[in-house]
Design a protein around this nucleic acid. Sequence first.
DNA 1: CGAGCAGTTGAAGTCAGTCAAGAACTGTGG
DNA 2: CCACAGTTCTTGACTGACTTCAACTGCTCG
Lengths: 235, 235
Amino acid sequence: MVKSVTLREAWSGEADCRNCALRTSALFAGLTEKDFDLIHDPIDQFNLKPGTALYKTGDVGDYMYTVRAGAIKLVQYLPDGSQRIVRIVRGTDVLGLEALLDDGYHHDAIALQRSEVCRFPTRVVRSLSQDNPQLHRELMARWQRALNEADAWLTELSTGSARQRVARLLLRLVRDRESSECELFSREDMGAMLGITTETASRTIAGFKRESLLVESRPNNFILDIPNLRRLAED
Amino acid sequence: MVKSVTLREAWSGEADCRNCALRTSALFAGLTEKDFDLIHDPIDQFNLKPGTALYKTGDVGDYMYTVRAGAIKLVQYLPDGSQRIVRIVRGTDVLGLEALLDDGYHHDAIALQRSEVCRFPTRVVRSLSQDNPQLHRELMARWQRALNEADAWLTELSTGSARQRVARLLLRLVRDRESSECELFSREDMGAMLGITTETASRTIAGFKRESLLVESRPNNFILDIPNLRRLAED
DNA sequence: CGAGCAGTTGAAGTCAGTCAAGAACTGTGG
DNA sequence: CCACAGTTCTTGACTGACTTCAACTGCTCG
């Protein structure tokens, strides 16, 4: 089990929103300059090492986050203590939507890889969305995207043989990417994503390497044989 | 495989919204009388027999639905043709939120039991939510609820042994109910919900009956031994 | 250098999948 | 009312995939 790092250590200063590469694709794309002045102030940026927790289940939802780079896992726990990763949040996605409603966060949010996130107060979004139809619409779209992810997670990553699930996970990691190269997660995390054991995850990956479906380009970086993986994933 | 019935046959007239028992708990709880006149008109009510499809994946999302009684399954298909039930919608829930955004529906929505639903045009919700913060908020809450369901479906119903999954499904069916009695689904549907085969579902249910965790009160109606099922579900 | 951890691999056991057959139920038409 | 076809449910035997437990390797980091 990776040990946690406090958020404080990960603080890297105030965000440069105006020049943020994600601006057009991100949550606040539709804001005017005036709105923008309002929200810029309280935004902080963090660089996360793997294992850092952004928040824990039940924490008060004072903040929401956008992911600039890397990957964050959302974890839920079963009564018996076993964990299940219900989603990973990457790219331009938003984290902590549930904070807009009453209650606290519904997952543990933990960095899987080196990641950069921006943090902003929930109250800002809440007040802006009151009288900003475009932001309102953007929020609904975010919620729907999360729901799509959740459904896909179930149908693609929790159905079929271990080989199929691993193949589908790998393909998912390089979707909407220019290259067919990707960084892998720990076997333990892969297991928790796919509902299989660490050992089975390890064996399956090892098998894929032997069959050259995966080629290690540099440590923990793999090039995928997409066509053959796809064939495997589909039947 | 149950054969489909057309929606037309299920039409049972215009809805009596004003006296609807669900009104206070449902989507439109916060509307004024004036708003109400606006939406009442185009609402139709349907009585569905098991197997009736409300909509199919990809259909144009002109309508949304509330469930008054019964249960609707949301089904997704894998490339190889196998199906997975990603959620069931019951009670006062809303169906077809995704229609508020651009694209069509994301699932097949099919009645599991005799059900009653009300249908209303998506455009009505879209226009009302523009300048009605309370409806806006209500919509976000609905989305979040769907997301919670999706997450629970993954952690509770797609994790652990077949016995655990079935036990958790049964407990889920009587949650927020006065009695510990419930109607079961077909073994095929249970399998598609839990990611197990029909045979395994059947064997597990049969086993539960033998162990008196389930007692059949009348045909296809079962009383649950909640404490023992809970013990089973948790470890 | 050694402790600790992630990954790998092996051997044994088990649970669920598969294939197949029979039982129970449903609805239909005579 | 009964006979029949067509489902769905159940049960059995067998197989295979995944889990479990355990040992060993190689890395990283104090």
